[in-house]
Amino acid sequence: MAAKGRERPSGWYMVPVMTFFGVFAILPMVLVVYLSFTDWDGFGFPSLSGGGNWSRILEDREVRSSLVLTLVFMVLGWVVQTPIAMMIGVWAAGRQRNRAVLSSIFFLPVLLSTAAIALLWNSVLDPNFGLTQRLPFLDQFSFLGDRTLVIFTVAWVLTWQYVPFHTLLYQSAARGIPVSIYEAATIDGAGRYKQFFSITLPLLRYTLITSTVLMLVGSVTTFDTILLLTGGGPGTATRIAPLYMYITGFTGFEFGYASAIAVVLLVFGAGLSLAVTQLTGFRKMSSQQEGS
């Protein structure tokens, strides 16, 4: 066995994974593309409608505005969440006992289900009976009812929900940085900030990319928190593209048109993650810990 261990495993090893991937990823994608060329209200067999859904997408103002809104949440989410997650992650990587206790509290939202998070914030921010209505200063805002403010409210809740997960990524990555590098830097006279920007940050680069791809692709596909928190409202103020797809498909029962929106999101999300990995040289990733 020892000698064979260095050989590449036979192709048969891929069969389970490829079967799984094919049935649960490739096949649904092919079906969605097919459905996007049909008219289907859920009854009978989908009837081909040519490019009907696609010409409708080009004229649908709501597709455009929901895509713009998706981008807004994406950029806002990344800009706010990345520095917070990185700072807490690096801080939590320290092995002091108080940090271990505090960070286990920080990670609590990871354990909560999305529904719990959305309903919790919904009742905290309720315009009539919410906690914020009992507090000075905060009671003058309608966090879920104001068309502009609601965007920041949703971004805040999403931050609250997702920062702990990304913090975990940064924490484990920061713990992987060899202490000897810091010791050498200290001997060379580098201070805390210098150490952070010259050692920690560069060595967290690949984690930063991983976390970024997860955030960007996540914002194109997930909408559960928004659905439960605002339902896309007030009006359509927080109706992001994946939510619009869901409403079209499962409230309006226009599965064909919803599939067309899904294809747009699929291309958008795949292109985005491809662009990020290409631009950052993620593919040429190699270990940065040689010599440790």
Partner: peptide, 17 residues
């Protein structure tokens, strides 16, 4: 005001209350 009623619910016992 629109920003008040637009986020008031019925299921959560909002308007009933």
């Amino acid at each position: 005001a629109a920003e008040d009623f637009s986020s008031t619910g019925y299921d959560a016992g909002g308007t009933t209350q």
